[in-house]
Write a protein that binds this DNA or RNA. Structure first.
Lengths: 331, 331
DNA sequence: AACAATAACACAAACGTTTGCGTATACTTG
DNA sequence: CAAGTATACGCAAACGTTTGTGTTATTGTT
């Protein structure tokens, strides 16, 4: 039997309500002398609060849920770190739930869990939620926000980078460095992220009056292997002089495969990645990237959720920047 | 107002107990006809169970907690995937809590959370728990297990790789490939993992009658930067012909720095890593490693916790293997 | 036909908190 | 000094479930 508030009350010769108020620091409800006494007794008895009971009685939980894809990408850590950074300062607990990879069953289960636990908010990270899951989440009324993810307007509030801008800026950078034939690797045509980036790419090309060969667009996801196979598609004598990869891992796949073909990066082929995680700095050559600030995305998302003025949460884009490293060169 | 079991009972014209039993599938307590009816009404009303109330009343939760360091290492993902694999099949929820990096405050908070929530078990991943946290966990009586972590005997049950064997096997491999002067990089002398690996290293060296120069042992942790600075310590003309790094990232740090010194790996220096995560396959040269099966560690740990024959949990080592890649050569 | 046994359900207590309200006591104020 | 007002605390209901123990019908047995 665990020691409860009741035991503490009895031992301290006060009522349970007093113990409750002391232990949860409801100011102006007790004399500091009583408080000290109660706290001491509680400590002596080894009292541990039962969070379930508390949440049940108070109708509010202090836990934030992060629903995340069992992502092959590697920026989730940074987002989570950002979330923890502000959650911790605010005294909230964070629970993380994996929702698999395009796995509606697991998604439903994760969403069901957050609803059953009536968490105070949920952050959906790098995940396009299925319609089913999304609508249960919406009807539950639990505040939620999408982080770094497909942000079709009707989805709900999001904090992310502007994927259109990402595609546009990357392309523009390469064009301005003399590249006219630019490959785009790993974009998922089914996803919002992918199509946005592709549109940005096309816009930049058009703006500079450059034709796009559809053969330069090799779809895929965010994996290393997608980079490898895409480069295999381009072959040993690629028509393109530069490639934009959908993630750091994908870029590495491209570079590895290029190397296997005897192609020097960046001497014979420039490769640029999207994300700019630590991988771009430890890999050789270091990889020029469109860098997103994932830590800030996490921070901003958490802050938005915690911000309790009851205005609806504002969606926003966080700035991206291009970081020049050694995988690209001026033509 | 959320719809409760009471509302369902009223709408279905049965008692709350019946609804409860139907919805939680307590066999032999109701007619299947009633059950169908109740389930339909519940669905129509959009009933969502309140997990807090249920856990409170039944004194048992179905959530498994994973306490993890905000790890700079990168194998945690695989362990978590393994945990999820068996937890999901078993119908358990998993919540992940970050406990920072050697941060007693965060550790305490994480442990406090799992105790307050009275989870059914906790998996401590790659984390040496402070005495304070450990003893609260122990007195709480919550089943727990350490995964891939410092496993001093008195800590409690663990599932991990045998760090002594890791140090020993890595060293032996290099010796048998003709290396006599072998560096050991990134071992933390304060940690059990580090000292075990060092002991294994020394034993292998002694076994082959090789002297150890203390200068070859460069302490550190598991980071990329530790690899870089260690290699800087060895300098442009290292005395050692091979280096064992404490993690894949550390190995990459070593190789990058070596390359900056104009040293070819493996032509002029062999580098071997411990862990064998995906990094060793995407980096060039691919990295020979002592490979741990983190996914299985996760699976085994979770299974051990869930296994409810009430014998105490058995500690065990999972096998390691050496995977030869391109960062080492025969001398 | 009488009775026991079982199936199907309802009642109500319990889980450990929080919190609105009530009530003494002590302290102001005119 | 009476009346009003804080202050400090206790009482008890409520939160939404689970579950042990009744309480009826229904079925089976002799």
């Amino acid at each position: 039997m665990r020691v409860t508030i009741k035991d503490v009350a009895q031992a301290a010769n006060v009522s349970v309500s007093t113990v409750s108020r002391v232990l949860s620091n409801k100011e102006n409800f007790f004399a500091s002398k009583t408080a000290d006494h109660v706290r001491k007794v509680a400590a002596d008895l080894g009292y541990q609060r039962n969070a379930y009971a508390a949440d049940l009685a108070s109708h509010q939980s202090d836990v934030l849920a992060v629903v995340i894809s069992a992502t092959k990408s590697n920026f989730a850590d940074e987002i989570i770190a950002g979330i923890h950074d502000v959650a911790t300062k605010n005294g909230n607990s964070v629970m993380i739930l994996y929702a698999g990879e395009n796995n509606p069953t697991l998604q439903d289960k994760a969403i069901k869990t957050v609803i059953e636990r009536d968490v105070m908010g949920v952050l959906i990270v790098a995940l396009e939620l299925g319609d089913e899951s999304l609508s249960s989440l919406k009807t539950s009324g639990i505040p939620h926000i999408f982080l770094s993810t497909a942000a079709k307007e009707n989805l709900g509030p999001f904090i992310a980078s502007d994927d259109h801008a990402i595609g546009y800026e990357a392309t523009k950078y390469l064009i301005e460095h003399g590249h006219h034939k630019i490959g785009l690797v790993g974009m998922d045509e089914q996803s919002f992220v992918g199509t946005q980036r592709m549109t940005g790419y096309r816009e930049a090309m058009a703006e500079y009056g450059l034709a796009v060969n559809e053969d330069w667009l090799v779809p895929g996801y965010f994996t290393f292997e997608d980079g490898e196979t895409a480069m295999a598609h381009f072959g040993k004598q690629p028509e393109v002089t530069a490639i934009i990869a959908n993630s750091d891992l994908t870029a590495i796949g491209v570079i590895d495969q290029a190397r296997d073909y005897g192609l020097e990066v960046p001497a014979q082929l420039s490769v640029m990645s999207i994300d700019g995680t630590k991988l771009t700095r430890i890999f050789r050559p270091t990889i020029t990237s469109v860098t997103q600030d994932f830590f800030q995305i996490g921070r901003a998302g958490c802050a938005a959720l915690l911000n309790d003025d009851n205005e609806p949460i504002q969606s926003k884009f966080l700035p991206i920047k291009i970081v020049e490293r050694n995988s690209t060169r001026q033509l």
